[in-house]
Design a protein around this nucleic acid. Structure first.
Length: 425
RNA sequence: GGAGGGAUGGCAGAGCGGUUGAAUGCACCGGUCUUGAAAACCGGCGUAGGCUAAUAACCUACCCAGGGUUCGAAUCCCUGUCCCUCCGCCA
């Protein structure tokens, strides 16, 4: 959520910045709601004050043994007036909140302007795509022969956009997960966490999935409103919801390996082949809760933490800065890491690292207190994949495939696979 | 699933429906005293919104959440959530 104070200031400027990312702000409506809200609030508080004063007077009179009947008569209609004022105020507040909670974050000044992913700006590349002297297979074909990767079976068990992994591929998947988690905890200083895979609406509102993007989520069919997490960013970032953290515990660096569930509504027909786009995939997520002054340093650092995994796995990739039009709802700045896929001869997203500044923190009232400062301040929140395990698996399979259909295992990963140098599929 | 108990400020813990944003203790901050420290004593010590030049004063809200009763609710009633204990079941 944007700062309400900002929305009382230079609205034209806010609208201009939001327009950069393709969001049209209805300035008039916002101003109207704001004025209305303020008037109703003043009015309501005036009535509340009057009620409080008179009630106190009645209490006093009663204590002195005076007759309170005439005093009661004076307040007879106050209750009704107050009730109707409260209802009007609540209505105005709700309208205002609906509008404001649907506004995306302002892009950071360094974010390139653009409409689609084609306008993203490449920051750098690492590694060189391999030259193959045999016909490259994609991960689907690599896994199909042996049956170690089975989409038909998953379709029978559940439906489209699921996978069954078996044998060496299942083990490789697990090895990658453990490897990533170990790097993030042992080398990059994140605290390993285990979190619920279902969260409530408050958590989803806090990170910005709700109210606008509910259709991307799997909602459980019960009254509690639980949803399956689309990313561990949701539970991890919400650690700080309704908290005032001591400055000494910052930066708080959290990581978790979880499955992620996404309905992929609106992407019918996109990436229907293979593991690229699934309803369920595993991810090692990094989250940092930091002081505002350090959030952009932390962003660069986290990008490095994600890059370290790709480098260790000898996977060529590039980093792009997302343009204003391609960024997520809550992000002020986002880097995507795109790994080379030889079967597609292109780079595909494997990690996304974002600084949300105080946008999520404001939605979830996540604050910290500096011992020298009187008032608590909003945290800055960052999240990044480190990395998406499923996509990483297929990147390893495809990039390190051999003519005989086997896959060589990058050296740092071998300890996680009992020391083997290649997997026969 | 059944039966009970509970939720109050950073923590602990009071609180007959009436001037209670809330006693008291601890912690914390400032001060006095002291060579210094401790102790003692004095003072301060929540969050958010409104109004403001103001992080001043004032006003409003908040004692798990949402409803209700009342002139007035931390206190009474209803619903929900969470926690604890016992029984049953279960990984």
């Amino acid at each position: 959520m944007l700062d309400p104070k900002l929305l009382r200031g230079d609205l034209e400027e806010v609208a201009r910045q939001l327009a950069r990312r393709g969001f049209v702000l209805d300035i008039e409506q916002l101003q109207r709601l704001e004025t209305q809200r303020r008037e109703l609030q003043t009015e309501t508080e005036k009535l509340q004050n009057e009620r409080n004063q008179r009630s106190k007077a009645i209490g006093k009179a009663k204590a002195n043994g005076e007759d309170i009947v005439p005093l009661l008569a004076e307040v007879s209609d106050l209750g009704d007036r107050l009730d109707s004022a409260k209802i009007k105020l609540a209505d105005a507040q709700e309208q205002w909140e609906t509008l404001v909670s649907g506004m995306p974050n302002l892009p950071h000044e360094s974010v390139p302007e653009g409409k689609t992913e084609d306008d993203n700006v490449e920051l750098h590349r690492w590694g060189t795509p391999r030259e193959f002297d045999f016909e490259v297979l994609d991960h689907v074909d690599l896994g199909k022969k042996s049956g170690y990767l089975d989409f038909d079976l998953a379709a029978k068990l559940t439906g489209a956009r699921f996978a069954v992994m078996r044998g060496p591929i299942a083990r490789l998947h697990r090895a990658l997960t453990q490897f990533m988690l170990d790097i993030q905890t042992e080398q990059h200083g994140y605290e390993e966490c285990y979190v619920p895979y279902m969260v409530n609406r408050d958590s989803l509102f806090g990170t910005g999935q709700l109210p606008k993007f509910g259709e991307d989520l799997f909602k459980l069919d019960d009254e509690r409103g639980y949803h399956l997490i689309p990313t561990a960013e949701v539970p991890l970032t919400n650690f700080a919801r309704d908290e005032i953290l001591d400055q000494a515990v910052l930066p708080m660096k959290l990581t978790a390996h979880t499955p992620c569930f996404r309905s992929e509504a609106g992407s019918h027909g996109r990436d229907t082949r293979g593991m690229i786009r699934q309803h369920q995939f595993d991810k090692v997520e990094m989250v940092q809760l930091v002081e505002p002054e350090t959030s952009y340093t932390a962003l660069e650092e986290m990008r490095g933490h994600a890059e370290a995994i790709l480098q260790a796995l000898a996977l060529p990739y590039r980093v792009v800065t997302l343009c204003t039009g391609d960024m997520g709802f809550g992000a002020a700045k986002t880097y995507d890491l795109e790994v080379w896929l030889p079967s597609q001869e292109t780079y595909r997203e494997i990690s996304s690292v974002s600084n949300c500044e105080d946008f999520q923190a404001r939605r979830m009232r996540a604050r910290f207190r500096h011992p020298e400062e009187k008032k608590p301040r909003l945290l800055h929140t960052l999240n990044g994949s480190g990395l998406a395990v499923g996509r990483c698996l297929l990147a390893v399979m495809e990039n390190h495939q051999q003519a005989d259909g086997s896959v060589t295992i990058p050296e740092p990963l071998r300890p996680y696979l009992g020391g083997v140098e290649r997997l026969s599929l």
